[in-house]
Computed example of a mutant assay.
Amino acid sequence: MALSEHEQRLLDQLEQQLHADDPKFAHSMASNTGRSMSTRRIVLGSLVTVAGLAVLLLGIWNQFIPVGVAGFLIMGAGVYYATTRSKVDGAAPGAGKVAKASSSPRGSFLSSLEEKWDERKRDQP
């Protein structure tokens, strides 16, 4: 369902205000199509998975259960490493500071949203 021109303008204003009030959150919520899984992580994860499979088969062949369990755990770690994305920005410690610093502008952001909502309701028949 397409947005009307008025709704599109409101959405653009909200987006601009979000970028002004909390740029870090806006950046994290933006769809980033250029960001894909790392080939290096996939290759290393696959190699670790194959090594884990070899250790698992070695444990089965020797009938030594701890080696088989270790191989299974290594395989799981390899698959996990290959399928997860690395953290691009390590800004987790600063996240609390941003939330505290932006608490006062957030009130104005919410109040402006409320005003726009009321204005929109008044404009509708």
Rank of each mutant, 00 (worst) to 15 (best):
M1F: 04
M1Q: 03
A2C: 00
L3N: 04
E7A: 12
L10Y: 03
L10G: 02
L11M: 03
D12R: 10
Q13S: 01
L14D: 06
L14R: 10
E15D: 09
Q16A: 15
Q17A: 10
L18G: 10
L18D: 05
A20N: 05
D21K: 01
D21F: 09
D21G: 01
P23R: 11
P23M: 10
K24D: 06
K24E: 08
A26V: 05
A26N: 04
H27Q: 14
H27P: 00
A30L: 03
N32V: 04
T33Q: 11
T33A: 14
G34M: 14
G34T: 05
R35V: 11
M37A: 07
M37E: 04
T39Q: 09
R40C: 03
V43M: 03
G45W: 01
S46Y: 01
S46V: 05
V48F: 12
V50N: 04
A51W: 02
G52M: 05
A54Y: 02
L57P: 00
G59C: 02
I60K: 13
I60L: 15
N62Q: 15
N62T: 14
Q63D: 08
I65M: 13
P66N: 06
G68F: 05
G68K: 03
F72Y: 07
F72S: 09
F72C: 07
L73C: 12
M75L: 13
G76W: 07
G78Q: 04
Y81E: 05
Y81R: 08
T84K: 13
R85C: 09
R85G: 13
K87C: 02
V88A: 12
V88Y: 08
D89V: 10
A91W: 02
A91R: 07
P93C: 04
G94C: 00
G96A: 06
V98I: 11
V98E: 12
A99D: 12
K100L: 07
A101W: 02
A101Q: 10
A101P: 00
S104V: 10
S104W: 04
S104M: 07
P105A: 02
L110A: 10
S112M: 12
L113V: 11
E114L: 13
K116L: 06
W117I: 13
W117F: 13
E119N: 14
E119T: 10
R120F: 15
R120Q: 14
D123V: 08
P125N: 10
